[in-house]
Each structure stands twice: as C-alpha cells, then as structure tokens.
Design a protein around this nucleic acid. Sequence first.
DNA 1: TTCTAATAAGACGTAAGAAG
DNA 2: CTTCTTACGTCTTATTAGAA
Lengths: 401, 401
Amino acid sequence: MMAMSCKDGKMAMDNGKYVRYTPEQVEALERLYHDCPKPSSIRRQQLIRECPILSNIEPKQIKVWFQNRRCREKQRKEASRLQAVNRKLTAMNKLLMEENDRLQKQVSQLVYENGYFRQHTQNTTLATKDTSCESVVTSGQHHLTPQHPPRDASPAGLLSIAEETLAEFLSKATGTAVEWVQMPGMKPGPDSIGIVAISHGCTGVAARACGLVGLEPTRVAEILKDRPSWFRDCRAVDVLNVLPTANGGTIELLYMQLYAPTTLAPARDFWLLRYTSVMEDGSLVVCERSLSNTQNGPSMPPVQNFVRGEMLPSGYLIRPCEGGGSIIHIVDHLNLEAWSVPEVLRPLYESSTVLAQKTTMAALRQLRQIAQEVSHSNVTNWGRRPAALRALSQRLSRGFQ
Amino acid sequence: MMAMSCKDGKMAMDNGKYVRYTPEQVEALERLYHDCPKPSSIRRQQLIRECPILSNIEPKQIKVWFQNRRCREKQRKEASRLQAVNRKLTAMNKLLMEENDRLQKQVSQLVYENGYFRQHTQNTTLATKDTSCESVVTSGQHHLTPQHPPRDASPAGLLSIAEETLAEFLSKATGTAVEWVQMPGMKPGPDSIGIVAISHGCTGVAARACGLVGLEPTRVAEILKDRPSWFRDCRAVDVLNVLPTANGGTIELLYMQLYAPTTLAPARDFWLLRYTSVMEDGSLVVCERSLSNTQNGPSMPPVQNFVRGEMLPSGYLIRPCEGGGSIIHIVDHLNLEAWSVPEVLRPLYESSTVLAQKTTMAALRQLRQIAQEVSHSNVTNWGRRPAALRALSQRLSRGFQ
DNA sequence: TTCTAATAAGACGTAAGAAG
DNA sequence: CTTCTTACGTCTTATTAGAA
C-alpha cells in the first residue's frame, strides 16, 4: 500500500528520486532548445529517440523541461529588457538635463542682453518700433486683461474672470508669457526638488516650478489648497463663497492673510478668486487671482492693519502620470505693494527669489514629504493582501472543499 | 522495502503526494510571515504547536515554505522596484522634454527679438554700448581666434591649433558660443532622432544635434570619421598625415572633397585638421577645422574645379554612458563661400537647415541604423553561451563525474 | 452552420531537492 | 541561508469532435 501511494505521487521516475540532469544532458537540451524552443509532442519523442543521452528521460520530463526553460527565458528576458529600458531612460534624462541647463543659460544670457537693449532703446528714439516688438514678446498677460465688458459678482461675471485667470495662468506655466530665468543655484537634477525659475522684468514678483510627485492629482490639489499647512507666512485662508460651474469646476471666493516678514511692516491680505477645474486631458488646474475694483468685479473693503496685496494669475497645473503620480507646474505671481514699506525693506517685497523659496519651493517640498510618508507606510504592510485575496478566490472556486 | 524507498525519496509527506497547502493554511502562514518573515527553528516548532491548522505540516516543510516565501518576496520586490524606477524616469523624461520645448520656444523668441533690437540699434547711435554688449553674448568664437603667435606646420603649431579647435568646438557643442535655435519641425521626443538645432546670426551655416546611441564611443568615432559612408555629398576624404600627440590623441591632416548640389556650381574642397582625443572624463572628442593661410598655419594649394570651402571648428563629442551606449553631440559649422555661385543658388549654401538635414542628422541616422543592426544580430543568438558555460563549469567542478 | 463538451497544451505559481 | 532547478497543481485558452 505504501508502495502504491508512492507511485501515486507521480514522480514518474525510475528510481522515484528527484534528479538533476547531467551537464551533458543539459547541454544537449539547450542545443535543442536553441534550434526549437517549442517542440511539438511528436518532435519531442523524436528528440528522445535521436539523442541517446536523453534516452533515460521520460517524455513528460522533456515536456516539463522545455516548459520550465521557456519560462526562465521569459523571466530573464523581461528583467534584462526592463534594465535596458532603464539605462536608456537614465541616459536620456542626463542628456535632457544637460540640454536644459544649456538652454537655461542661453535664456538668461539673452534675457539680460535683451533687458540691456530695451533699456537703451527706450532712452533713444525707437519708441514706435519698440512697442511693436514688445507686444510680440510679452504676449500673454499684457493684452489679455483690459478689453472686457464690465463684470460683476454674478456667476457669469465670475466665470468670465475665472476662465481668463485660467488662460493666463497656463500661458505662464507652460507658455512664454513670462520671461522665466533659471533660479540662482537651482540646477535641475534627479535629486533636486524640481525645476525652478523666477521672473525677469514683469510686474510684481513671480516664481515658477515644475516637478514630479508620487501622489494622485486630487490629493495634490487637496494639499496645495490647504495653504496654511505648508506656507509658513500664511496666517489664514477663509472660503467665503463656493460656486459650482457648469463644466464641473468650482469657483471659490477667498480671503487670505499673510504674516509680515518683519514687525516693521504691516501684513498683507488678499481677496481672491480661486477656480478649480478639470481639463480635457484629465489635468487638474487650480488657479487664483486677486479680485479688485479696477476690474469692475466684486470688491471687498480694506481690513485694518492689513495692506491689500495683489495676486496676479497664479496656480497649480496637476497632470496625472500613467502609472500613478503627477506632474506639477506651479506659478506664484504677486504684487506685494512694496511702496507701502520703508525703503530698506523693499527688497523683501521685490525679490522673486524670496518668493520662490518661501512659497513655490515650499509647496513642492510639502508634496515631496507627504509622498514619502505615504510610500513608506505602504512598504511596511506590502504584499499581504494579494495572498489573502488569492487564497479566498481559491477557496471560492473549490467550493470550500 | 518499497515503502522505505518512498521515504528515501524525501517527499516527506504522509500520503507521498505533492500537495498544495489549503487556503486556510496559506493564510495562516502569510499572517505569521507578515509578523516575522525569518523565524528560527525553535520559533517554527512553536508555531506548529500554536496553530492547529498547521499541525499536519512537517517542520521541514514549514522551513521550506518560509524559505520559498522569502525568495518570492525578494523577486517580486525587485521587479516592482524596477518598474517604479521606470515609471519615474519616464515621467521625468516627459517633464524634461516639455520644459525643453518651452525653453526652445523662449530662446527662439528672444533670439529673434534680439536680432531685431540689434539691427535697429546698429542704425542709430549706440555704437560704443553695442560693442560692449555683443562681446558678452557671442563670447566664444569671436575673441578666441585672433591673438595668437604665428603658427606653422610644426607639431607644436598644429597642436596649438588643435587645442584651440577643441575648445571652440566644445563651447559650441555644450556652451553658449553659438545662438542655437530649434530646428523647424524637430520636436525632441523619445522616437525622434535627437535634439537638433541650427545657428542664428553667426558666420556661415551651423547645425548642432545631440542624442543617444547604443554603440560604444570608439565604434561611434570610427563610424563618424568614415564620412563618405554616411554623408552622401562627400566624394572623398584623404588622410595626408597622421601625428600622435603627447596626451594620447591624434592629429590628422585631411583633404576632403564634396559634390556640388547642382551641376551649375563648382564642388567644394576642404583642407582640414582633425584632432581626436580622449578627455579626462572618458569622453571621446573628434574635432575639425579648416587650415588656411590667414592663420599662418600650413597651407594647401587650390585644386582645379574646386572652390575651397571653410570649416569652422566642428566635431563630435562622444561620451560613454554607464551600461553601454553613448551620448553624442555633433556640431557642423561651414562657410560654403556662397559668393561663388549664381545668386539663385545661394540659399543652398546659406541654409543651416539644409546643412542639418544633409550632414548632422544624417550622421545620427547612420549611427542609429548601425546600432539597430547590431542589437538585432545580438538578439538572435542570445542566451546560448551562458548555459553552455554553466554546464561546463558544473562538469569541471564535479570532476566529470 | 453554430454551439458545446472534451481534450490538449501552455502559463503561472509553488513545493521541495541540489549546490554553493 | 540563498539561489537555481525539477516537478507538479491549477487555471486559461485553443482545438476539435459531435450534437442541435
């Protein structure tokens, strides 16, 4: 009986032992595999007859050997393919980063040279030509704002402002509406926080950043909208009104207060419209701008001890990445009304670099940190659910045998 | 006796059958694994006692289960890690390419605006200021050439010219010595041949490209030096002299003939110095320039039916990539003496775009094609040697048992 | 012809032996 | 122990013979 049960075990070998094939056998099998990795059952029998070294291996074992061999090759091939792709992408990345760096240098050089030209041209007699040229360059923000019908606080009026804000934000984030120059000391790199640039020669101070984050777009928007949690100068953000739009977006009216950088100057407050929407390609956009009387939009009375600051179209463009994560573009563009502080303090209010460090990069840092926490907590209890689920499905398919 | 042989077979199971553990058992084991993936043998015995569902599994099996489980996790983790890296690199690539595109647009805009300013400034009274500014911008090539002691055809003289050529080539390839603008219709992308740019507002015509190639640097240099094999307009390249340099490089004196694009114009020939050298970082550089009387260098008499063309510092920078392959930068910079052809034909000699398409991109295409052929021939006889070698080593280690 | 059940073959995951 | 290998159970899919 025990003997029978042993044979039932289907080891199907003469001596009932687990054997490894001899190197000669393996070599013969490898050779055959090289010629034909997928022999039919007839071909396999033929092989056994033709090759004396394989004659003591059963047909079933041959079949299994070929199966396993194919499986091994597949696994190895996939792994090496992935590594090759990885190497190529890494190299491409390096090349692109260097090219980026070169372009940034070129841009900086051209922008400063340009500024020089412009400055000297203004002092001379090229007034008419100059305007025509400038309108080509600073295309976006200049001629979008003015010529609109009067707008009020009605939904239609707000939506009009919102859409305009969106367009202007995007042209700064991904277009050439602002002459961005490389942020001093910020080279793009795999370990850097992202690509950061600051404005040159536009009104107010502006900073721009883009980077990758391992979080879903909605989560990113959530985090970034909660400005007090990552922007240390942000004292409060109050949502005064929420207005859904027809296209599934949301318009909010916000009141925001920032701390003053020193006690010698009054703090700033802002009266903002925030527009959150989803674009056709699935990108999430959150953009903001100040509402002011000059636009014929709704207005907000001044608040004591606060100087009303202006936010020019700014925001976050959050694009989903295939395979999780997001590509994020941030633009911060403020006019901090430097005239209202003593002259020695004005650089604090007129420095794009300061804005980039305190706001734009702080946002990226916050996102990076949260993404890291999430990924770490994921790693610890990883690989547990799948097995349990599989076990359950097996149990179900067997009817709880 | 048969029963004994079955036990000898070490299947070590009650009924001698290959069994898979029940879903309940797997679930229990997974839970234990989650708490402690590497239990000691004492701990394992304890587990069997504590967990009634595992009581019919032998201690040895438990040990094996944990071993296999650890192995599986390791494999899975490695695979998912690779994939995650891949996703991240892909996203980073996308971001960098978009940023690149934006920067290229910005550069084009600035360069044209600049040209406009420069043109109009020259017509007015800013002569003194203008020079100071221009020297900042077109830094490299302008003020490197003139002030040198007279040089002759001696090794020292040639080396001096070669080193200068190298420096000027590099400043065009990786620096901002030339105002490169995006080649019309050439967007960088994963499927594109590389990043291609053409010159704006420098003497002669110039094109620049960079890209990745799956070939070793020495092989790349070999291919690129064999210009007639890939540059259809190249009629002949003769090496007249070869001179090794102290730093392991090579200086060659070449005579090159190009076909004329039409029969209405005479062909061009070139009298070139080519300098091949290895940089400290392992990069291979092949750079060339024309030798002409004006430099006090060696000279070459004119050839009948040929118009002597001028090659400004040009060349190939070939940097090895970790994991095989190369990053390649190409600069082609010619002065084709357009004055010598009828006016209607001059655009042919003055178009950087034509140069880029016929020379610079042709080089990249040739490399790409050869790399592809190599990789294909590799794939066909792949995975054969390792197995045979392994089998041999096994046989050796066993002493041909 | 089309549908269905039986069969075969392969992919995938995993238990356990072998070698280092 | 880890890594590789042999062998097997399970599930899926392609093929085919027989029935509607």
